[in-house]
Amino acid sequence: MLSESIEGVEVEILAFSDVHTPRYLPLLIKSIQDLKEKNFDVVMMAGDLVDRSNVEEFSKLLEVLKSNIKYKYIVAVFGNEEYREKEEEFKESYPEVRWLNDEYLVLKLNKGCLGVVGSRGSLLRPTSWQRKNLPGIAEEYKRKPEVIRQLIKEVKKECPNVVYLSHYAPTWKTLVGESRHIWPYLGDPRIEKVLKEEGVHVAIHGHVHRGRVSYVHTSTLTIYNVALPARGNVTIVKMALQLTI
């Protein structure tokens, strides 16, 4: 289990993605069975939580969390396996989950506040399936870095502590282990530049099943790949909070 801390008053985040329920649900259960005594501030899920947008299957994952760990909030973004036409059904069926889709929220914690900017993220190049089935997707990805930038600016007006949560990778650095020629279809390094410029200290993503790099420090930014098939475990992120007065 990866546990990385930054100096200061901390918030504790349990993060994972790519459960593809039911495929990797036994691995999730094994990963959290020893965490019953812990109390997490936030659970963050970085997409591909089910296969083929099976809304009903998500209830199994949620029950595993409720039965095994304690947490104050649960936040999720959609992956490519949560189809766009099913997004509202996920939201309506599981309102206890804070679903973010190019949106932000501010979580109030005893230790302060935590802003979360959530998105599927962006690809440097749309896949062939996306080009065929998602009209305008290339233009959407072209605009996405500035969409993310504006969300960060907005949430920082309310809270100085920001996590970027996405399905697709915001960097090349955590893609090591995947074939180099498919990197443009796994993430978008332009997002990393935005995160650095806007002073985001923590980014969490999934999607990269064969990534050998758990996390990278890039100056003031730490980026985590929390894909369950890659890590073989959940990831615990301890993030320093700037307290608000």
Rank of each mutant, 00 (worst) to 15 (best):
E4F: 05
E10I: 13
V11H: 02
L14K: 00
L14A: 01
F16I: 02
D18C: 09
V19D: 09
T21M: 08
T21F: 03
R23S: 15
L28D: 05
I29Q: 11
I29C: 15
I29K: 12
Q33K: 14
D34M: 13
D34R: 11
E37W: 14
F40G: 10
F40E: 01
D41Y: 02
V42A: 05
M45I: 04
G47D: 05
D48C: 02
D48R: 04
R52F: 14
S53Q: 11
N54V: 11
V55T: 09
V55S: 02
E56L: 14
F58S: 02
K60R: 13
L62I: 10
K66M: 10
N68R: 07
Y71N: 10
Y71T: 13
K72Q: 08
Y73M: 07
I74H: 05
V75T: 07
V77K: 03
G79I: 06
E82H: 00
Y83D: 03
E85F: 12
K86G: 15
K91E: 15
K91T: 10
P95N: 05
E96I: 09
R98P: 04
R98Q: 08
L100S: 04
K108H: 07
N110F: 14
G115I: 12
G118I: 00
L124P: 01
R125D: 12
P126C: 04
W129S: 13
R131D: 14
N133Q: 15
I137F: 01
I137G: 00
K144R: 14
V147W: 04
Q150R: 12
L151M: 03
E154M: 05
K157C: 10
C159W: 00
C159N: 05
P160R: 14
P160M: 10
V162T: 04
V163N: 01
H167V: 05
Y168W: 12
T171I: 05
T171A: 08
K173D: 10
T174M: 09
L175K: 03
G177L: 08
S179V: 14
H181A: 15
H181G: 13
P189T: 08
E192T: 08
K193L: 14
L195C: 01
L195E: 01
E197T: 12
E198F: 07
G199F: 02
G199E: 12
V202P: 00
G206K: 04
V208S: 11
H209F: 01
R210F: 11
V216C: 06
T218Q: 12
T220I: 13
L221R: 07
I223R: 06
N225M: 09
V226A: 09
A227V: 09
L228G: 04
A230Q: 04
N233W: 06
V234K: 06
T235M: 06
T235S: 02
K238F: 04
K238T: 01
K238H: 11
M239Y: 00
M239G: 01
A240C: 11
L241P: 03
L241G: 06
Q242N: 07
T244V: 14
T244M: 11
I245V: 12
